[in-house]
C-alpha cells in the first residue's frame, strides 16, 4: 500500500516523466522532421506541466485578482494599488489581510530594507506606508521574520511544499517554510481570503511557452525550406540525397575513394 501511495501522491511527476519520455522518444526515433518537431513540443509541454504542478498549492486558486476581492478591499479601506508592486506578470496582490500574499509583500519589504540599497528602500517605503495599519503590521512581522537571504519566494514555495502532493519535498524547503507555514495557518483564520498558488512558475512558463512557439515556428520554417530544397522531409531520404550528391552513391561506405571535390558550391544543384 505504501508503494501505491508513493506512486499516487506523486502523480504529477509521473505524468511529467511519461510525457517527457514520449517526447524524447519521438524526437530520436522518428525520421520525419515534422514529427520530430511534434516530439519536441510534447517534450517541452511536459516541462511546462512540471513547472505548473510545483507551483500548485493544494486548495489554492489561480493567482488572479478578482473583482470580488477588490470590493472587499474597499470595505477594508485598502488602496487597491498599494500592493501592486510585484510587477506586471504577477497580479497576486490582495489586501494585507491575506496571509500568503501579504507575506510575500512583507518579505519583500524586509529584503528591500535589509539589502540597504537606499534607492530601492525609498521606493518600497512608499509601498509600505501606502497600506493601512493592518498591512503594515503584517509587513513588519514578515520583515523581521525574514533575513536578508530569505526571499519572498520561499513563502510561496513553503505553501507548495505543504501541499500533500508535494510532501516529498518537505525535507528540503519544508523546515525552512515550516515556521511560516504555522503562522500562515493561524493567521489564515482571521481573514476571508482565497489561497493562491505560487504565481512564479506560471510566469516562467509563460516565457518558456513563448520561446517554445518561436522554436516551433523556426523549426517548421526550416522543414518547409528543406522540403523545397530536397523534395522530402524524411531523414533517411535526406541522408541518401546528400550522399548521392557528395559521393555519387547512396551509401558512402561502399565507395571509400569519394569525397574529393565535394563542398564546392551547390553540390546538389539545390536552390
Amino acid at each position: 500500500m505504501d508503494i501505491l501511495q508513493f506512486v499516487i501522491e506523486r502523480f504529477n511527476y509521473w505524468i511529467f516523466t511519461v510525457l517527457m519520455m514520449v517526447g524524447l522518444y519521438t524526437v530520436i526515433a522518428r525520421g520525419n522532421l515534422v514529427k520530430k518537431i511534434i516530439g519536441l513540443n510534447i517534450f517541452q509541454t511536459s516541462v511546462f506541466i512540471y513547472y505548473i504542478s510545483i507551483g500548485k498549492v493544494s486548495g489554492g486558486t489561480a493567482p488572479i485578482f478578482t473583482t470580488e476581492h477588490q470590493k472587499e478591499l474597499k470595505k477594508h479601506e485598502h488602496h487597491g494599488d498599494a500592493h501592486h508592486g510585484d510587477g506586471h506578470q504577477v497580479p497576486t496582490h490582495q489586501d494585507g489581510g491575506h496571509q500568503d500574499t501579504a507575506h510575500q509583500d512583507g518579505s519583500h519589504q524586509g529584503d528591500a530594507h535589509d539589502s540597504a540599497d537606499p534607492m530601492t528602500m525609498d521606493l518600497h517605503a512608499g509601498d509600505l506606508h501606502a497600506g493601512d495599519a493592518n498591512t503594515s503590521a503584517t509587513l513588519t512581522r514578515a520583515g523581521e521574520h525574514h533575513g536578508v537571504s530569505t526571499p519572498d519566494l520561499h513563502d510561496g514555495d513553503a505553501n507548495a511544499l505543504h501541499a500533500p502532493a508535494n510532501d516529498a519535498l518537505v525535507s528540503q524547503g519544508g523546515d525552512h517554510g515550516g515556521d511560516h507555514g504555522g503562522e500562515i495557518a493561524t493567521k489564515a483564520t482571521e481573514f476571508i481570503e482565497p489561497l493562491y498558488s505560487n504565481p512564479l512558475p506560471h510566469v516562467l512558463i509563460l516565457t518558456a511557452i513563448v520561446v517554445g512557439v518561436a522554436t516551433t515556428a523556426v523549426g517548421l520554417a526550416l522543414a518547409v525550406r528543406i522540403r523545397e530544397a530536397y523534395g522530402t522531409i524524411e531523414e533517411d531520404e535526406l541522408e541518401t540525397a546528400d550522399n548521392v550528391a557528395e559521393f555519387g552513391v547512396a551509401d558512402p561506405r561502399q565507395q571509400q575513394d569519394g569525397g574529393q571535390g565535394a563542398g564546392r558550391l551547390n553540390p546538389g544543384g539545390a536552390q
Binding site: 526550416l222 530544397a229 535526406l238 563542398g263 558550391l265 551547390n266 553540390p267 536552390q271
Partner: peptide, 9 residues
C-alpha cells in the same frame, strides 16, 4: 542554404 542546401538540415 542558398549556397549549399545541407545548411538547412
Amino acid at each position: 542554404g542558398r549556397a549549399d542546401r545541407r545548411a538547412l538540415t
